[in-house]
């Protein structure tokens, strides 16, 4: 029983690893831990393996399966959540709806309590 499980698990693992993957890093505007949540959550979608945004550097690192999602789609998803990326600007309507402390275009700044460093 335990061996079946273990072997089964390993096979799933291998098939996951065998797929074609890429990792990209680009800048995304944002302010605080709340922005981090929003940015990373916007990439909680099929095809994205890992998304990690760092408050300090504003760099978003994304690992994804190239067959399922493209780089430009990733930018679009982040912008749709209200955050400007290097390639796609968030539209004003979405931007207007994000929380006040996250208004990166209007000079909001963060008191820096970014406790959660865990990825999505």
């Amino acid at each position: 029983m335990k061996y079946t499980l273990l072997v089964g698990f390993l096979m799933i693992g291998l098939s996951v690893i065998a797929q074609k993957k890429a990792e990209i890093t680009f800048e995304v505007s944002g302010v605080c831990g709340m922005c981090e949540d929003r940015i990373e959550k916007s990439l909680d979608i099929p095809g994205v393996i890992m998304a990690d945004w760092e408050i300090k550097s504003k760099q978003l690192t994304v690992a994804y399966k190239t067959k399922k999602i493209s780089e430009s789609q990733i930018h679009q998803h982040v912008a749709d959540a209200g955050h400007d990326t290097e390639k796609v600007k968030a539209n004003d309507e979405v931007y207007a709806n994000i929380h006040g402390c996250c208004k990166y275009r209007d000079g909001a700044s963060c008191s820096g309590e970014a406790e959660d460093e865990h990825d999505y």
Partner: peptide, 16 residues
Amino acid sequence: KAGVDLGEAEVVERKA
């Protein structure tokens, strides 16, 4: 508290 709001929505949904 002085500082900029981190807000109610600062929810740590996935913490090991």
